[in-house]
Design a binder for these strands. Structure first.
Lengths: 303, 303
DNA sequence: GGTATTGATACTCTCTCGGCATCACAGACC
DNA sequence: GGTCTGTGATGCCGAGAGAGTATCAATACC
């Protein structure tokens, strides 16, 4: 009874027919296909019966395609070829030799761990394409939920957001980045309260309310009410503003490794906000080998 | 042992998988496919095993596609859809509800029998497209051999060419087509020898050496050596030249039914060349239902 | 905690498919 | 023209795949 797909044949019939149509000779075709000739005869006959159409004109001595047979071959052959390519492609994809991962990151990630990860990942999985886009923490969490990205480098609150796995990559007490000509730029040590008069460049609060508020709290505990000169994004623009002398900004020491001219990085004594960089992904993420490979390289496999 | 096409699956597996992937529910999918649920489970499991790739992530309660599964579905679905359309199309083609016939013809055919045949054919087989092209006899025979055309309306020698079936459609003693102002245009009766001074418009000899030579022989037997004004093709141009007053040309009475102004048709008394129009096709033509249909309409079915 | 739902398993049966042997027929060859 | 060779079709049989029924195990829901 369930002998009825909407197809009056099986893949086997098509492959058999194709071979006979190519060779125009049952015995040779049978040999190519590694079946006995009678099996071929019957398969073709069955195909013709199911289709209700004669595909081959066979006298006892000669085999030739009918018009319908030729049309059938022309229609079927490209489909068979396309279908033959599918398993290999899928296996490559499942084996992590192909595919793509969509990864989001913040400026801090790009300034620290990300370049090394990307270089190593590209070395080990040259077939997997990484699609990168810079995106603030809040947007990344949203994109992860939607499945728009597979994983992200972002800055969570101390309590990791629910539903995500995270791997801590960086946790550092922030220093300050100052314009080079700032009066404190050469001071050996700085405390937060020294910066009461200095305008600060921040990121838009909506991008990461938790961290934003921790920064404000740090000022508060130092007895200072900070002046927010501007809120800019992406991160590179914040550094640009500092360079232009418009104010200072917080910065993790790791991020201060290579800096442009005209700015100076100074660590902070006493209370200061902490930057935490994690790699996060959906706990229930479907088995995505490309993501898995990326997590392995990012050293987050265990989490 | 012959369990190895280059495909690790059968059409059945693909159809089953597609349905499960759509419904994400084995029981419902099984119902849609009119199989029992266990059969589905096993087919999918077998597909995954043969592919060596997990396509579905199934907890006991929820079914979802893996990344590989989604890619597989995307690759396979259009192929399945394309394949589903094939049998119907082929059946239509074999049943004569679709397809095309390539038909060649000469000017005489188009001026006499062809329009009626085409009208009737189009009425009875609206799905079959007729591809027409005007072509001289010799070229038609070549095209028939090559299979470039399925049948042709042409002018054979008395002995039909070998390997072809033909049906005689027209056999007429030619008259002459003259410019209206020609001195003989109003003569009640003409004989070939009256035309000794009149230049003649012919077709290139290579187009039909047999007929060409029969024309010359007719002149010869009338004691006349004709003056060939020009050899032109296709036929309409010959009539054009007559109209322009450059000479006369031979013409079958049937062809003279509707004529432009400025020309006059006159029958010939005594010896005159004969035009024979036949419909011809390869005797060993493979069963082409479209051709068969055309031959039936052209009244050549019996031959 | 009980119940219902859902996918997986166990077992059996059927029937298809493939192999082997053989047939029937058409060309080829002498 | 008779014989032989090669070709596709057919008959028969056995193995095995696939489907069905019954049932299990796990999980979500009340």
């Amino acid at each position: 009874m369930p002998r009825e797909y909407q197809y009056p044949f099986e893949l086997r019939h098509l492959v058999y027919f194709r071979e006979v149509a190519r060779q125009l000779h049952y015995r040779k075709a049978a040999e190519s296909l590694a079946v006995a000739q009678p099996a071929l005869s019957r398969s073709i006959a069955q195909l013709e019966k199911e289709m209700g159409v004669d595909l081959l004109n066979r006298t006892r001595r000669r085999v030739e395609l009918t018009t319908a047979g030729r049309a059938f071959l022309e229609r079927v052959e490209p489909l068979l070829r396309a279908l033959a390519a599918v398993p290999g492609d899928i296996q490559a994809l499942a084996g992590g030799q192909a595919g793509h991962v969509r990864v989001a990151f913040t400026g801090l990630a790009m300034a620290t761990v990300l370049p090394g990860i990307l270089r190593e990942f590209n070395r080990r999985y040259p077939g997997i394409k990484v699609e990168l886009n810079e995106s603030p923490t809040s947007a990344q969490l949203e994109s992860l939920k939607n499945g728009e990205i597979a994983c992200g480098f972002f800055h969570p609150d101390v309590t990791a957001p629910a539903g995500f796995s995270t791997k801590l990559l960086l946790q550092e007490k922030n220093g300050v980045l100052l314009p080079a000509e700032h009066k404190l730029a050469k001071a050996p040590k700085l405390r937060l309260r020294d910066l009461a008069d200095t305008p600060f460049v921040m990121f838009p609060r909506a991008h990461n309310p938790g961290f934003y508020d921790r920064v404000l709290a740090a000022f508060q505990s130092a007895g200072v009410t900070p002046r927010i000169a501007d809120e800019v994004w992406p991160r590179a623009n914040a550094i640009g503003l500092v360079r232009a002398g418009l104010g200072a900004t917080f910065m993790a020491p790791s991020e201060a490794k290579q800096l442009p001219e005209e700015v100076a990085f100074r660590p902070l004594d006493g209370p200061a906000p902490e930057s935490r960089l994690v790699l996060g992904w959906r706990k229930d993420a479907p088995t995505d080998p490309a993501l898995g490979a990326f997590l392995v390289v990012a050293g987050a496999a265990t989490a």
